[in-house]
């Protein structure tokens, strides 16, 4: 049987395995779940079995890890996955009203996906940006100090080019791309 993850991501997988002692390869289950999610769009049975084979784990154990953590998708989502924080500090800065307006604009319920498969929106717990609420992560990229006008512009941009959801909002350098020297 072929292992799609090993075939396509050998270098990344080896890198993650190299971080942990030889007899502790199970530590790589979380990074490998991210790789499976990237490859399949969500953590499906094929991804779970690929990981189980690579790490010599039981597929059930891999599935239990995927189920415990909220950042692994158990089913397909929209192209842009919106995580809106509505915890107390954000709520004090209007995040709940912002999220209600966003859901109305998208014509979906909390956790739902738009008909065109473009957006999935979910409320989440604190994301560590309380001073810049309302805020969200779009495909895990921070977008802060939002209102619906900014949001409509962003969504129009993402509809044109879904990869734009991964670009920084302010046009400046992002932490992930910054030079280290």
């Amino acid at each position: 049987m072929q292992n799609a993850l090993l075939e396509n991501y050998k270098e990344q997988i080896d890198y993650h395995l190299s971080k942990y002692p030889d007899d502790q390869s199970r530590s790589a289950v979380m990074p490998l779940l991210y790789i499976a999610q990237e490859h399949y769009g969500y953590v499906n049975d094929d991804g779970v079995e690929d990981i189980a084979e690579i790490l010599d784990m039981d597929p059930t154990q891999v599935r239990s890890i995927a189920g415990f953590y909220t950042m692994y998708r158990e089913k397909p989502k929209g192209d842009v996955w919106l995580h809106v924080c509505t915890d107390l500090p954000c709520a004090l800065r209007g995040a709940m009203e912002f999220y209600d307006d966003l859901l109305e604009e998208l014509d979906i319920e909390d956790g739902g996906t738009t008909e065109d498969g473009m957006f999935t929106a979910e409320h989440v717990m604190c994301l560590g940006a309380c001073d810049r609420a309302p805020m969200l992560q779009a495909n895990f990229r921070f977008h802060e100090n939002l209102d619906m006008d900014i949001m409509r512009d962003l969504m129009a941009k993402w509809r044109e080019d879904v990869n734009a959801a991964l670009q920084p909002t302010d046009g400046g350098d992002t932490v992930s791309e910054r030079e280290a020297n």
């Binding site: 560590g128 895990f140 932490v175």
Partner: peptide, 10 residues
């Protein structure tokens, strides 16, 4: 935390 992946890359 997973949401800080950009920081991890840096």
């Amino acid at each position: 935390r997973g949401e800080y992946w950009e920081i991890a890359e840096q």
